[in-house]
């Protein structure tokens, strides 16, 4: 079975903090996979690891041949993958205010010393990102364009490299509501036109509903539920996913399950199931005694990445 990138039991630890604690998942060609979680779930650390900006403590991130990481030209610390490109939450911060749009989009080509047809490729990337006519934007500076256009420039800067995988870190979280849809539509369009895969990290379940083929729900450094979007957002099985979905303002009304407290510190991951101290199912007392005791003592382990859908919960498996 083919995949663009395959994560096998990836751990990223910072001292005693286990930010990413055993994640296995793969991204298939042409699919949009949404990694959903709250802050502290480790999703941002994970996406940085896939990009190569973050060293992995253990486990393996395997890319297909075209997305193979190349060691960088002048031997510095960064490790860029030509076939894996990234877009960011804050497009304003992601653009150097002293560079023109042209220079920003051409940067990847210049780093890789691919100077043939540079202007043509930059123009094509800009118009693919919806900035037309591209020549109008060449000499402009980031402060001269709007927030939505800045995100399009960031996307153009990634697309100029013709990646197989686009990593998106909260791509619309800092944009105005009415612009959000346009950027998401653009991402879908890119998938259709170029066969690209997208791994998008977000706390926004509406975004997943809008564009994702599959959803992976992260809690405290691990994927706790994984499956097709319709199933995860339609009939969630893991109690955390269910609680999360119940509080989304956009849900067709289901009874709210507001969890108490916040995600615990990743330096003190609870024993047993990492979700058990906040689990409404366990607290309801409806679980059979032997299941309940497993919840507090035994780790259900990572979800099976090869199953169609899976939830890391003793009560559902």
């Amino acid at each position: 079975m083919s995949s663009i990138v395959s994560l096998n039991d990836v751990h990223v630890h910072f001292g005693s903090s286990r930010a990413v604690d055993g994640v296995s998942v793969d991204v298939k060609p042409g699919e949009v996979l949404a990694l959903v979680g709250e802050s502290g779930s480790g999703k941002t650390t994970l996406i940085r690891a896939v990009q190569g900006l973050q060293t992995v403590t253990s486990g393996e991130i395997a890319y297909t041949a075209s997305a193979e990481p190349v060691s960088e030209p002048d031997g510095g610390r960064g490790r860029g993958n030509r076939g894996v490109q990234m877009i960011f939450q804050d497009p304003t911060g992601a653009l150097n205010p002293r560079q023109t749009i042209y220079e920003i989009v051409a940067e990847g080509l210049r780093i890789r010393k691919e100077s043939q047809n540079e202007a043509e490729r930059v123009g094509r990337a800009l118009s693919r990102a919806g900035l037309r006519p591209p020549e109008r934007f060449f000499p402009m500076y980031p402060h001269q364009i709007s927030g939505g256009q800045r995100q399009r420039v960031v996307i153009a800067g990634a697309m100029v490299m013709e990646p197989d995988l686009l990593l998106a870190d909260e791509p619309v979280a800092s944009l105005d509501a009415s612009i959000r849809g346009e950027i998401l539509a653009l991402m879908l369009e890119l998938v259709e036109e170029t066969g690209l895969s997208i791994l998008v990290v977000t706390h926004d379940l509406g975004l997943a509903w809008n564009i994702a083929d599959r959803v992976a729900v992260m809690y405290l450094g691990r994927i706790v539920e994984l499956g097709p979007t319709e199933q995860i957002l339609g009939e969630p099985r893991h109690p955390y996913t269910r609680a999360l979905l119940s509080v989304v303002p956009e849900t067709t009304r289901m009874e709210q399950q507001i969890l108490i407290g916040e995600i615990p510190d990743s330096r003190r991951i609870p024993v047993g199931c990492r979700f058990h101290p906040r689990c409404p199912l366990l607290q309801s007392g409806t679980l059979a005694a032997e299941v309940a005791s497993r919840c507090t003592t035994e780790d259900p382990g990572p979800v099976d990445m090869n199953a169609d859908s899976a939830a890391a919960c003793w009560a559902v498996t």
Binding site: N81, Q85, N96, G108, G157
Partner: peptide, 21 residues
């Protein structure tokens, strides 16, 4: 700043980062 991260994710080395950003 995020644009340094962006450049690094594009594969930039330290020389490029210092000179360009």
């Amino acid at each position: 700043r995020l644009f340094v991260d962006r450049s690094r994710s594009l594969g930039a080395g330290n020389g490029h980062l210092v000179a360009r950003h």
